[in-house]
Design a protein around this nucleic acid. Structure first.
Lengths: 124, 124
DNA sequence: CATTGTAACTTGTATAATACAAGTTACTAA
DNA sequence: TTAGTAACTTGTATTATACAAGTTACAATG
């Protein structure tokens, strides 16, 4: 069978989907940025305000990487002065499944961790 | 309600389960080590042999961290000379769900990536 | 019109993590 | 005695991350 699609056989480490996902997301901050955008945050300032206190230089770097990877899209939502909003592409929104797996594992195996929802509901 | 369990309110970054999971697993290699053990590898040498070519110093460090975190258990399987096998605790085996989410996302959104299974089946 | 404020970054430098090459220990087998 | 192997450790170079400060382009206030 032939498809029109180009297929990179030139991977940084291996053709494993996990390895390639980790090349992109395997750090302390990327998935937290995705989490915040999934929770409705959109601007640089809102994302800076995370409870984990991401350093501004790290946030700027991650936003660029995730945008280059087609996970985030950056768009000006006003001019004079120009202000930007970050949102998730389909590729980015699909990371919700991975986040969910992390939430399930973390709440079950790391004692004391809690989601915003469980905290609001008083389950603590 | 009172439980007997101690609950750490002293987290490195925040009480978020994702953040705490990433404190442990948020790097390029940890989840690949878990993947290999899930695939039946057990010894240091087998784990060193990954297609991603993990550096030996990095592997030694990850095995220690994951063991300290209660994700891996290390046991001698023979004496004279002593040889060790690494295996997953329940906490570690539960990471299979996270790995699965990564596989699903990666194969869908990173063109050309493939699992051992799809490769063996000739789906490429 | 000068000053203050704010969003969205950038730059510089210190510290920490990771990579790569080589060496070590405790054996077995020839 | 020599060679081989598993499971690491050590040293150093490179890269990533963190922290503090500075920059640009405006709006709003007095």
């Amino acid at each position: 069978m032939k498809t029109g699609k180009t297929k990179p056989d030139t991977f940084r480490r291996s053709p494993c989907p996990v390895a390639n996902a980790l090349d992109l997301l395997g750090d302390q901050w990327s998935l937290l940025v995705i989490r915040d955008i999934l929770h409705g945050k959109h601007t640089y300032g809102e994302l800076l305000d995370s409870p984990e206190k991401i350093p501004t230089s790290t946030l700027a770097d991650r936003l660029k990487r995730l945008e280059n990877a087609g996970i985030l899209v950056k768009a000006a939502y006003q001019e004079r002065p120009t202000r930007y909003a970050y949102s998730l592409s389909a590729k980015g929104a699909a990371l919700g499944e991975i986040l969910l797996a992390f939430v399930n594992w973390g709440t079950q195996y790391i004692p004391g961790t809690q989601t915003l929802k469980s905290f609001k509901d008083g389950r603590n």
